[in-house]
Design a protein around this nucleic acid. Structure first.
Length: 398
DNA sequence: CCTCCACAGGAAGCGCAGGAGT
DNA sequence: ACTCCTGCGCTTCCTGTGGAGG
């Protein structure tokens, strides 16, 4: 049975390269960001503490890949210059999704510094361990906090990491924060904000041409020769650019399209596989995003999907197309909530939900301008109406 | 031009849960 | 075991804002 699989024809040469987690050698269209990061981190080479850096950009804009790449290059350079410096410059990447408190991140850091696990020790002991290491080695520690908005005690964490620098004469700690949440910065304590955002960097979404080139580059290495049609790449790029300019979805799209081609035992990936893949990928993304949302927010999205599916739009505009008023969505939402015997939230809080959905890209909102009554929010679905509707119906058990 | 409508968004406050202190 | 504190999710109240319609 396994042999059968081995001999099966596949379009993939090296599937890993197509995966969104793979970090390629060159990162196209991120030259400016790379230069900025290098400028910020340059003092590290001469063992001077660099400024803190805050990186913002939507998902799939290459934030994580870029920072990892630059840090790797920096370590290489340092190694070449002087092998002894290697121990004195520590770069440390952590994702706050799995390590969502100051204690957990510090614990991970000590584990890396000492190759020893300090689980069970008190928070202050672990903190002192980190300080001791830096003092003893006169080291520079660069901490990358990815998805920093998920850190529960951010203000405290940033404050103590920064304060550590006051206790240290030589060397120090620099923080690189990464977030895809626009509102995040505004929620911070002003002191945290000013120290974390000493330098800021924005990663804009990719446009269709840029995505196409990224896909072409990956496809060249990841697929067997002539196994992807050029138009299929263009289509995948166009789909993703249209939605979010997200390289991650573009790659997922390509990967799924390859899978579908293999399933159908086709020799190459064409437009139709990409189209089919789009539905699968959208489902995956929606399921992923809504699974963490509270039930009430899911109901709001469900209402939007229902109205869109039934074509009960509030108004049709020249530049925006068919859109919904937030007021109409609120009425629909209240209707659904009452059906299951629960009470709906106030309009004020409802708007908060709308903003949250917008943040996740599940819906697209615009402020009403000319031709629309007063000031209201115009809402469109971010993904296909039927897919969104079906996924939510399932999740909510309706 | 004025008023009204439909909504935005800030501020304050409320009840609750969970953690820290004692 | 107790109180106290704090953050969270949410409501209520209030002050804009800008097009629609008289």
């Amino acid at each position: 049975m396994f042999n059968q699989h081995l001999n099966k024809h596949t379009v993939f040469k090296n599937r890993e390269i197509i995966s969104p987690h793979y970090i390629p050698d060159t990162l196209p269209f991120r030259e400016n960001q790379i230069r900025e990061i290098i400028t910020t981190l340059a003092p590290t080479i001469t063992l001077t503490r660099p400024n803190n850096l805050f990186i913002y950009g939507k998902t799939g804009t290459g934030k994580t890949a870029t920072i990892k790449k630059v840090l790797d290059k920096m370590q290489e350079t340092i190694k070449e210059r002087d092998i002894n410096l290697e121990k004195r410059v520590i770069t440390y990447y952590i994702n706050c999704r799995s390590h969502n408190s100051k204690y957990k991140t510090l614990l991970k850091l000590t584990a890396k510094l000492y190759n020893e696990n300090y689980v069970g020790y008190s928070a202050s002991f672990v903190y002192d361990k980190v300080i001791d290491f830096i003092k003893k080695n006169k080291a520079i520690v660069i901490i990358v906090l990815d998805e920093i908005d998920l850190l529960q005690d951010i203000d405290d964490a940033i404050y103590s990491l920064n304060r550590a620098n006051d206790e240290i004469n030589s060397g120090g700690i620099a923080i690189i924060g990464i977030s895809n949440n626009v509102m995040f910065k505004e929620k911070l304590d002003p002191r945290t904000k000013s120290s974390l955002c000493q330098k800021e960097l924005v990663f804009p979404p990719y446009n269709a041409q840029e995505l196409k080139e990224i896909l072409t580059q990956r496809a060249k290495e990841g697929f067997n020769q002539n196994c992807v049609e050029d138009s299929a790449l263009a289509l995948a790029a166009a789909f993703s650019a249209q939605e979010s300019g997200d390289a991650r979805t573009a790659l997922m799209l390509l990967e799924r399209a390859g899978e579908i081609a293999d399933e159908k035992e086709k020799s190459s990936v064409s437009d139709s596989e990409v189209k089919n893949a789009k539905i699968r990928v959208e489902e995956e993304i929606i399921i992923n995003m809504i699974s963490t949302l509270p039930e009430q927010v899911q109901f709001v999205l469900y209402s939007i999907a229902t109205l869109t599916k039934n074509k009960q739009f509030s108004v049709k505009l020249l530049d925006e197309g068919e859109v919904l008023y937030s007021g109409d969505i609120y009425n629909e939402y209240c209707k659904h909530i009452k059906e299951i015997g629960k009470t709906c939230v106030s309009t004020k809080w409802f708007k908060q939900y709308i903003d949250e959905l917008d943040l996740y890209g599940l819906i697209i909102t615009t402020n009403s301008g000319k031709g629309v009554r007063g000031s209201t929010t115009l809402v469109k679905l971010g993904f296909d109406a039927n897919t969104t509707y079906d996924v939510l119906k399932n999740t909510l058990g309706l």
